[in-house]
Design a protein around this nucleic acid. Structure first.
Lengths: 118, 118
DNA sequence: AGGTGATTTCGATGACGGTCGTAATATGGG
DNA sequence: CCCATATTACGACCGTCATCGAAATCACCT
């Protein structure tokens, strides 16, 4: 009992009503972060941080995840030693109707971005 | 005839097929530039550069117009001594369906931006 | 306990971009 | 021809941000 064995580390998330359009736009203006969102949407399921294929170092990815989380775009939670990422698609749709779908459509039609590692 | 009296100065515009999502997102990530787009859409008519109410200097505004133009978001043309600005809404809709409408809706619902001068 | 893999924290670095003021240029009107 | 107005070009400044590497932390497995 000295240390909680399964700490179940928690992550802070903003209410979508608290995030501004500015925040979301800044978050989604970065190609790497749009890559995260795109791959997350494409997978159709939550993804651990390590599964993303993006041309940046792990520490940089951590930074991007933080920006997306604070902008309310993704939700993060721990599963054992890995951290999972989920799109807050429905909530985003309520807060900024049409925005995410438009971006995902545009990304899908324009694959030549920071999508792949190699 | 030494100098053409009505030079009809022209402005270069990209085809929308040539602009990338990245370019558009970078352009629209700035609050002042979204203010331009928003006011342009709200006015329902083309506006001269000087008519925008934004909290930046004229020279800064010129810069922003240039970014928006190169991103294909607006079209500019001279009318006498003034320069007019028009939203390329229809073309944008073809290239990035739903993007502009989503942003305009979000902007309208969130007036507390760099919308006004005072 | 120790090892391994996943993710983070920290600090540094370098580039980019928004901002301004001033001087220049164009247009239209007297 | 000169002036007032509208917009631009130039150069400078400064903050912010994406990026990385190294070291730390946490969870799980043996």
């Amino acid at each position: 009992m000295t240390r909680p064995r399964t700490a179940a580390r928690t992550v802070e998330h903003p209410e979508l009503s608290e995030v501004s359009l500015q925040q979301v736009m800044e978050a989604l203006a970065d190609p790497v972060r749009r890559g995260v969102v795109s791959q997350l949407a494409g997978a159709g399921e939550d993804m651990s941080c390590g599964r993303f294929e993006l041309p940046v170092s792990p520490s940089t990815l951590t930074h991007h995840f933080g920006v997306l989380r604070e902008a309310g775009v993704i939700r993060q939670y721990y599963v054992g030693a890995t951290k999972m990422n989920a799109l807050r698609a429905e909530e985003m749709e309520e807060r900024f109707p049409g925005l995410l779908p438009a971006l995902l459509a545009a990304s899908a039609a324009e694959p030549a971005t920071a999508t792949a590692t190699a």
